[in-house]
Amino acid sequence: MASRVQIPTNNSALIAMIADEDTVVGFLLAGVGNVDIRRKTNYLIVDSKTTVKQIEDAFKEFTTREDIAIVLISQYVANMIRFLVDSYNKPVPAILEIPSKDHPYDPAHDSVLSRVKYLFSSESVASGRR
C-alpha cells in the first residue's frame, strides 16, 4: 500500500503549542518547551499583537516538522485559522484543541469532536451534556 501514511516511531518527539501566554507559561513550567540551536522555539505565544499570518506560519511549521508529535492549540486561536485546522487530516502530528482561561470551551467548534458527534448522532453524547 503506497498511499498509507507511515507512522514514525521515534523515541523523543516534542509537543508544540500555539496558545495564550498563561497556558504556554504553565506548560513550559511542566517542561514541554524546547529551544534549538537556531533559537527556534516549539511554541508560539498569541497575544493581541499577533497577526493571523504569524499563527498560520507557526501552524504550518509545526505540522510539517519531523520532531513534533502533538500540536496543542487554544480553541480561540484555532478559530482564527479554522480553515487550516479543518483541512488538516494527517494522523501525525495530532492537533489538539485545548480550552484557554478566558475563552470557554465550545465542543461544537472542535474539528475532531464534531466528526465524533456526527458518528455518534444516535446517542448524542457530547451535545446532551452541554
Binding site: 507512522i7 514514525p8 516511531t9 521515534n10 523515541n11 523523543s12 518527539a13 516534542l14 509537543i15 501566554e21 498563561d22 507559561v25 513550559l28 513550567l29 511542566a30 517542561g31 514541554v32 518547551g33 524546547n34 529551544v35 522555539t41 516549539n42 508529535a69 502533538i70 501525525v92
Partner: peptide, 17 residues
C-alpha cells in the same frame, strides 16, 4: 512568567510514539 519564558532550554517532557 518572565523567569519561565527565559529559562527554556531543552524539553524535559517528551513524547514517545
Amino acid at each position: 512568567k518572565h523567569v519561565v519564558l527565559e529559562n527554556v532550554r531543552e524539553a524535559s517532557l517528551r513524547v514517545r510514539s
